[in-house]
Amino acid sequence: MKKLIRDPQTVVKDSLAGFAAAHPGLVRVQTDPDYVVRADAPVRGKVGLVSGGGSGHEPLHAGFVGYGMLDAAVPGAVFTSPTPDPILEATKAVDGGAGVLHIVKNYTGDVLNFETAAELAAAEDVQVESVVVDDDVAVKDSLYTAGRRGVAGTVLVEKIAGAAAERGDDLAAVAAVARKVNDRARSMGVALTAPVVPHAGVPSFDISDHEVEIGIGIHGEPGRERIEWEPVDGLVQRLMTPILEDLPFTSSDDVLLFVNGMGATPLVELYIVYDAAASILRERNIQVSRSLVGNFVTSLDMQGCSITLLQLDDELKALWDAPVETAALRWGR
Rank of each mutant, 00 (worst) to 15 (best):
V47C: 09
A90G: 03
E115T: 08
P33S: 09
I87D: 01
V111F: 14
E58T: 10
V111P: 02
Q9W: 02
A123M: 13
R38T: 04
P24S: 11
F114S: 07
R28W: 01
K105P: 01
V43E: 05
K46P: 11
K46V: 02
A22P: 13
P8Q: 07
L16N: 04
G96D: 03
V37R: 00
V50R: 09
G97L: 13
T116A: 15
G97S: 10
I87G: 07
H61E: 02
G76Q: 03
D95A: 13
L70A: 04
T108V: 06
G68W: 14
T31D: 04
R38A: 14
A117F: 07
E115P: 06
D110T: 05
G53N: 02
K13D: 04
A117S: 13
L16E: 02
K13L: 12
A20T: 04
L4G: 07
T91G: 12
L101G: 05
S51C: 13
G52H: 01
V27T: 03
M69Y: 15
M69K: 12
G52P: 00
T83Y: 05
V27I: 15
A93F: 14
A62F: 04
Q30V: 07
A22F: 09
E124R: 15
Y35K: 01
V37N: 00
D7S: 12
G56R: 12
R28F: 00
G52V: 00
G53F: 10
L120T: 08
D85K: 15
G53C: 09
D40R: 14
D85P: 09
A117L: 12
V29G: 01
A118Q: 11
G68D: 11
A121D: 03
R44L: 10
G66D: 09
L101V: 05
K13P: 06
G18P: 14
F114Q: 08
G54P: 14
K105S: 03
S81Y: 10
A39L: 10
V37P: 00
Q30E: 07
G18V: 09
A121H: 07
A90C: 06
D71F: 11
A77F: 09
A123S: 13
N106C: 12
G109I: 12
F19E: 00
V74F: 04
P33D: 04
P8S: 09
L112M: 15
Q30R: 08
L60H: 03
K46R: 15
A117D: 03
V94N: 00
H61F: 06
M69D: 08
V47S: 08
A93R: 13
T31A: 08
P75D: 03
H102E: 09
H57N: 07
L70R: 01
G68I: 01
D7K: 11
G53Y: 05
T83I: 08
R28T: 00
E124D: 15
A93N: 10
K13I: 03
A121E: 04
V12W: 00
P42G: 08
L120I: 14
L101H: 10
V36C: 07
L16H: 06
H23V: 04
T10F: 15
E119W: 06
L60V: 11
V100I: 05
A118I: 05
V29W: 02
I87K: 05
F19K: 01
A123N: 12
S51T: 03
